[in-house]
Amino acid sequence: MYTFQKIRSFLFYVSVFLFFAGLPFILTFALGYKFNTHSLKFVKTGLIFVKTQPVGAKIYLNGKLITEKSPASMQELLPGTYKVTLELAQHYPWKADVEVEAGKVSRVDKVILFPMRPNLEQLNQEKFSLFRIDIEKKLIYYLDQDKKVVYRSSLDANNFEDIASLPDKFAQITGWEISPDKRKFFIFNQHQINVIFFDNQGDYEYPVSPVFLEYPQDKINDVFWHSDSYHLVVMTDKNIQVIESRQGALPINLVELNKGGPEAFYDTKEDVLYFSDSQRSIDGSFYNNLYKLELSANLYLLERLITQPFGQGKEAQKEQVGE
């Protein structure tokens, strides 16, 4: 028992000694101090923390390779500017001058090392003019104006299939968009809109033959799908209209515009059109206003609009959302 107690006492005093002897070093290290053996003084240092994506990059500090690879920290650095170079095989190197301050961490932790040969992959197998990506269904839609065809594939470029034909007489497509229900799409140019159903997507409600909508007097700037996948919101150089995507439909004029080609954004989720239009001030100069036009699914709204004569109620319908 006595021997055990002697050993225990020895261990206890060793532990106490280790604590009091080690603690100053631990704390000075933690606070960023370094003991200078030449001057026999503590010097406050800083550190650089390097983290890259991908990890494992070689780190050069002032041209000297350090043993650790990223992520790594270089501690006990005297304050000053350091040249940091990060190198990873087959990736573009990264270089920067990093300022180190006493007692502080200089973080170089948002470095992305881009590959020299990026993972570039060609997805299309044939020529195309325009494309659309459906992230939700992981599909790519290609539109080929020369062959007058729309085809699609999966996101990883498999399962190619033709899904629609474009009309022969439709010239110079300005834009296109697939309907929210993914059953059809429109193409448009300056004076025409053409709604085309994908193959085998028609049902009793809608015709499967293309729907042509003509705008001989106006210039079409942009077209959007309403969330019901039936109405189109058309922005011309003169007004904003809604029109049903059926043959012979008549447009409803919602807003008359002052400016020829306003900017616009359509929120399909909420059925809200944001657009800018110009207005003349008292001194004769023009300035822009931003408007919000709500078109939410709301047939009653459309019905109400239909009952109003064209061009009326512009002031009532424009809602100013910003100066």
Binding site: F4, R8, F12, S15, L23, I26, L27, A30
Partner: peptide
Amino acid sequence: SAIIIISFDFYWIIRTVYLTTLLVM
């Protein structure tokens, strides 16, 4: 706070090693 926590951590490391040695004995 960090200085106190680091001191306590260090104390706990030494204490853990010390007590584990006593346990072995």
